[in-house]
């Protein structure tokens, strides 16, 4: 079982990295990757929300959508769950752990509209739906997806920090060079697709 979970987590972090291979959550990836510090803050927030969202959406799927045969409402139901969850977590943190709330800052509400979170929720169902271990698997998958996101955004932020002080041709300055960098990073991650466990 542990080896199975390990395969899931390595798969989500490296082989099917959410940002660099599946191209989910590109907007925070480009938006908040100017500094390693803010990037890691965003990453931690995403890990946290993805774990909670995986657990909750699994419950919603298993005990609401499947028994009533309305799996086609998945997307709407999951968006609802994620939005509520993020709101709730924000309130909870503000009251109970203000220091964490302050350090996550604006990233927490931003995650509500992060498609990577919805991607995790839907992948959970399509990949592991129906098996008996799927609740634990869902949580492991969610956490690993978050870690993969963190890895990608922190790596990218590191490169962008170096780009700041380098001599870039005029026509590549700003967004162009950022997109080229993202593409190169994505190609680099393509190398992990050789790591197959099947």
């Amino acid at each position: 079982m542990i080896s199975e979970l390990l395969i899931i987590s390595v798969g989500a972090i490296l082989i099917n990295n959410f940002v660099l291979v599946q191209f989910l959550g590109i907007c925070p990836f480009l938006g908040v990757s100017k500094k390693v510090e803010t990037a890691s803050g965003m990453g931690i927030a995403v890990v946290f929300v993805m774990i909670c969202a995986s657990a909750l959406t699994w419950v919603v799927q298993e005990y609401l959508l499947v028994p009533f045969g309305i799996e086609y409402m998945q997307t709407i139901a999951f968006i609802l769950v994620i939005a509520v969850l993020v709101q709730f977590v924000e309130m909870f943190l503000q009251k109970s752990i203000p220091s964490l709330y302050n350090s996550l800052g604006v990233y927490l509400p931003l995650i509500t509209t992060n498609c990577a979170v919805l991607g995790v929720a839907i992948n959970n169902i399509t990949k592991f739906g129906g098996t008996e271990m799927s609740f634990v698997k869902s949580i492991v998958y969610g956490g690993s997806a978050g870690l993969g996101f963190t890895l990608a955004i922190v790596l990218f932020a590191g490169v962008r920090e170096r780009l700041e002080s380098s001599d870039i041709p005029e026509f590549l300055k700003g967004m162009p060079v950022v997109l080229v960098t993202a593409a190169l990073l994505s190609i680099a991650f393509l190398g992990f697709s050789g790591l197959s466990f099947n």
Binding site: M73, Q87, F88
Partner: peptide, 27 residues
């Protein structure tokens, strides 16, 4: 009716929960 009731019900329950939470966790 079923999907409307289920999703609508979820919305209402979540709304009430959030409303209660905002009172409980009011800063």
């Amino acid at each position: 009716l079923i999907p409307i009731l289920i999703v609508g019900g979820m919305g209402i329950i979540f709304g009430v929960l959030l409303g209660a939470a905002s009172k409980i966790f009011a800063v």
